[in-house]
Amino acid sequence: MTRMSSFRMSAWGWLAFALVPLIPLPSVAEGAAAAPVLQGETCSVPGLMDQIRRGLASKSPAYQRYLRALLREAAVTLPGAELQAAFERETDPVMAEHLAAALVARSEREADREAMQVVAKRALEDRDPAVRSATVRAMRRTGALEKTGDLYERLMRDASPEVRMEAATNLVEDNKFVYAGQHGPATDTAVAAAAASSDPKATAKILGTLNTEKLGAEAAGTLQGLLRSDSAEVRRSAALALGGVPAEQMGTAREALVSLYRGERDTGVRKALVQGIAQLGFASAVPELQRLKGIDPGMAPEIDAWIRALETGLQEWELILREKQRLQQAP
């Protein structure tokens, strides 16, 4: 009973604590000195920049997200030339990212379609890799990859590994959240950038989770070329990406994966190849997988798990993946 009362009291206390910010200030200040006179303020670039600088000191990620959203929403009404000039002058990477995001927002809201080019130019040409990385991040989850030509191929050749990884993250997130894998040209751009990269980690990051269901024929050929990379990471990610290609490219993709499996020595790559073959064929891949079992006896348990998962007759790839994982975890 005592414990219950104590709990009740503490719960009310916490509830009161949680609700304090919701109590209108005037009611708290009732009876105190007269409220200060409200002063009108215009929404200006310097004003918003001051607000962001103050917000950066708050150390609250939520408040910083709010300020970023505020700047993006205000961007369409801000004077474009002033915003662009402020961005070009700014050398602090954090502020540059906010201003770049505002320019990108103007472009995405179609208030100033060319604003994206200003950001892209700086992402390529700024001397400071931290500023280049920041401006690349500002283009994340937007239509930048459609509007900036070969920007991503060039970014993948940037001297800074940080910039290359930021660009790879953009391609992954844009394809996932902006296009949902449903826009072939966006997928093709990601594959072209992955192939242009000399950084195996960046290539593997792009291809490892790329939805390729709308991939074009030329890009499918590029992916098959990446199966011959010296890097096991790249071969592995290319094999996974080829598993999801559209119906018209499935035949050649399957042949490429089977052919590579015979000569491959890396176990991680072999596992990815088997997964790709399973994804391309579902239940019809079982005879092929049976044939591959003899090549490397060490892979037999992995292939058996795939065969059992495919023989369940599940029609959703995500469900097959889950079933295969379950079978491997089962005692």
Binding site: S6, F7, S10, W14, F17, A18, P61, A62, R65
Partner: peptide, 20 residues
């Protein structure tokens, strides 16, 4: 248990918006 309840209540008040 009591502390967990407090923490849960506090967390509810501070839940951020879902990013996606």
């Amino acid at each position: 248990m009591r502390y967990m309840t407090k923490a849960s209540l506090a967390a509810l008040a501070l839940l951020p918006l879902v990013a996606t």
